[in-house]
Design a protein around this nucleic acid. Structure first.
Lengths: 252, 252
DNA sequence: TTCATCCTCGTACAACGTACGGAATTGGAG
DNA sequence: CTCCAATTCCGTACGTTGTACGAGGATGAA
């Protein structure tokens, strides 16, 4: 009915449209789409997604700003290509037999992806775009939860759940880093510098639990949050819950 | 040692610094910080966070653009204030006795917050800033997981886990909406329009599981994703896991 | 009445994505 | 060999953004 999405040929470039893909007339391109995307990934990895500008990227590639638009329709589309590109770079370990380790591995692998490329968390619509590497990754995630007794739909939901806690954890890590960059203080330093002001602000208000829990957490974490501990706790609960679910289904 | 954070007095405005807070000389302010923040929330709720510009907001308030900076240090800081503001608006239901319902309620309440104000998900330092309403909310969340036999630190981690799945779910909802806005097509329409192109692109590649699971999920969801079902499945597994954990701890 | 203090806001600047159109380059057709 | 259509490259320009700066006006204490 409607036009096909122009992003699909770009995402699957080189794997589709082999016939009549290259233009026959006109000058050669100075670089390639892959080089553009890789350069974008490098900028985003080192300076953050916000620092990725079309002008800057063009300069890095020895191009005029507007030349980029012959490779990529626009900045948003470039980012989509970057996402698929880095999803193909992560390790995809061979799967152990132990079910618990298998499930944990899905989350741990996703976490490694997000920590290696934190800007993935800033781009919305991750699941919406199906590029070749995203598809490979999804396929790998599904194999990890295959043969456990889950239904097809539940396999999808399980992968989403495990990927979700990885993303949440990576976000927590990223928030701490961002806060430290902004204030120039480590988390601990910030709390020390602002403990008085905060205590004064909260005076007259009752936070019995938050006060107690915050203190206990602060002493253990030596910070306000501890993403790593949160990940391990949350993942343990999720896997426990999944195993319970598997047992229940099996004995039906 | 270092200077206290200038955001704290702003976040806790009206609750601290009652003496000598108002300036004595000079003209009165045309509006109030609360009006500015509320107007910002209104814009973000209806048009999205990206549509919130200082100029636009000032005009809406009958102010010159630069006058906003006498109320708020900058756009980022305004957003922080907006976050705390809306966190004080959500329902905080009375807690049922049943443990499962209690845990579910924490996640469901958080989900309602995120769905009502999707731009919360775009704010990077959501958890970093402790304003009065964020503190109230955290205290309420802790009361929901209090008295279940969890340790102090585990209470914090449990709340984070439940809040996390709510955020993940709300993000999934938001991503679907964003994709539909961008393409002008509903998810189903997009898949119909692009099924051929995708099939051609993926030809020659093997996605046995993704193909099977995708089809099963698509038929059930009538879409590529179903955030609501994912939420219910994930939450059920998490609560199962938490209950298992509580049992184990109790019998030690 | 004077003056320090605070608010208001016009102007200006740098940076952004990108629309537009001309110049340059290429390969196939005649 | 010539010519032309196709394609890439890129300088210029527009609109939009956050906000630095400083002039002007309003206010209340001295």
């Amino acid at each position: 009915m409607t036009d096909p999405d122009p992003m699909l040929p770009l995402l699957w470039r080189g794997l589709v449209d082999q016939p009549a893909a290259a233009p026959k007339r006109g000058p050669k391109q100075k670089v390639s789409v892959d080089e553009v995307v890789d350069a974008g990934v490098e900028v985003a990895d080192t300076e953050g997604l916000a620092a990725l500008s079309m002008r800057g990227l063009a300069q890095r590639l020895g191009l005029g700003a507007m030349s980029l638009y012959t490779y990529v329709p626009g900045r948003d589309e470039l980012v989509v290509l970057m996402v698929d590109q880095v999803l193909g770079r992560g390790d995809r370990p061979t799967l152990p037999a132990d079910v618990r380790r298998r499930l944990e591995l899905v989350a741990e692998t996703a976490l490694a992806d997000y920590l290696a490329h934190p800007w993935l968390l800033e781009v919305a619509g991750l699941r919406a775009w199906l590029g070749p590497h995203a598809a490979d990754r999804y396929e790998w995630q599904l194999t990890a939860v295959d043969g456990l007794g889950l239904g097809d739909v539940e396999m999808d939901q399980t992968v989403a759940l495990l990927d979700g806690i990885a993303a949440t954890t990576a976000r927590a890590v990223q928030e701490v880093r961002a806060a430290e960059r902004r204030s120039g203080l480590t988390e601990l330093q910030w709390w020390e510098a602002n403990a008085d002001a905060l205590g004064e602000a909260m005076a007259g208000r009752d936070y019995p639990l938050a006060g107690r829990v915050g203190q206990a957490a602060g002493e253990l974490y030596q910070a306000a949050t501890d993403p790593d501990r949160q990940f391990r706790f949350g993942l343990a609960r999720i896997v426990d819950g999944l195993l319970v679910h598997l047992d229940r289904e099996k004995s039906r």
